[in-house]
Computed example of a mutant assay.
Amino acid sequence: MNDGDSAGKHRAGGADEETAGNSQAEKESSQAEKEKKPRSFWRELPILILVALVLSFLLQTFIGRVYLIPSESMEPTLHGCPGCTGDRIVVEKISYRFGDPQPGDVVVFRGPESWSENYTSRRSSNAVIRGAQELGSLVGLVPPDENDLVKRVIATGGQTVECCDDQGRVLVDGEPLTEPYVTMDYPFTPGVQTCDTALKSGRCFGPVTVPEGNLWVMGDNRSNSADSRFHVYDELQGTIPVDNVIGKATFIVLPPTRWGTISSPDIQQQ
């Protein structure tokens, strides 16, 4: 009896151990299956959004950004006329990390103090909404709260710019510029309305010597652009610091009917 009971106990114990082993194996298998299961989309979504926002911030800060053209000062190159759909342009920020803007380039820049006297903030007076707008600006969802302008570079530091020669052309260091992009300008009629007649042409200005590290900029729509000529009596003689330049306008992305590159011709005769 004792031997039989002992054997029975050993068999029962072995069965219990086997059952326990199987249970542990099943648990481990179940745990492994759980670990292999892909994470829920809703759990990953916040991570994906965060990564997208960080990438957008880096892109907008160091590579390029899209800007809306709000005015007609660069017509016909860039559309911003009243009642029409303003162009959205890509402004790349890489070129000027390795060199300065050149005559003929179309640039976006932060307006100096005298250029921003009539600028009003686009931000809400509500602190919460304003904070959300500032955050949106960092990732490119909201325009920056600054007076960003777009014009074409006409002359750079050390050059002397003025208008006009006897054909009404802008001169840089005494040489006339080739400006195929200008289609709208003030009247200039030799012998009738020039820079020397009693009724002077609206084209006339200067001469102005551009300080080193600055640029003289003008709109392609010469008769409707508050550019360097308009600010010639400020502390910078109408010029803008190169440090204010955000980047070079390179491409029109909207509307689709206007897709294309933005020309930056060599306007100074060699």
Rank of each mutant, 00 (worst) to 15 (best):
M1E: 13
M1W: 14
G4T: 13
D5R: 12
K9P: 01
G13C: 14
A15F: 11
A15G: 07
Q24C: 08
E28W: 06
Q31M: 15
A32D: 14
K36N: 14
F41S: 11
P46C: 02
P46Q: 05
L50G: 11
V54W: 08
S56H: 03
F57S: 06
T61G: 04
V66I: 13
Y67R: 06
S73K: 01
L78R: 02
H79M: 14
H79G: 14
C81E: 13
G83D: 03
T85D: 14
R88K: 15
R88E: 08
K93H: 05
K93N: 04
I94L: 15
I94W: 08
I94Q: 07
I94F: 10
Y96L: 03
R97L: 15
D100F: 09
D100V: 09
D105S: 01
F109W: 00
G111C: 06
N126H: 02
V128E: 05
S137A: 15
V150H: 03
R152M: 07
R152I: 05
R152F: 06
V153Y: 00
R169L: 08
V172L: 05
V172W: 00
G174N: 06
P176G: 04
T178K: 09
E179M: 08
F188L: 02
C195H: 08
A198N: 12
S201H: 01
G202A: 04
F205A: 09
P207G: 08
P211W: 10
G213R: 08
S225H: 02
A226R: 14
S228H: 01
H231C: 03
D234K: 04
D234I: 08
E235H: 09
I240E: 07
G247H: 00
K248S: 03
K248D: 00
A249D: 05
T250S: 13
P256I: 07
T257H: 11
R258S: 12
R258K: 10
R258P: 10
T261I: 10
I262F: 06
D266M: 08
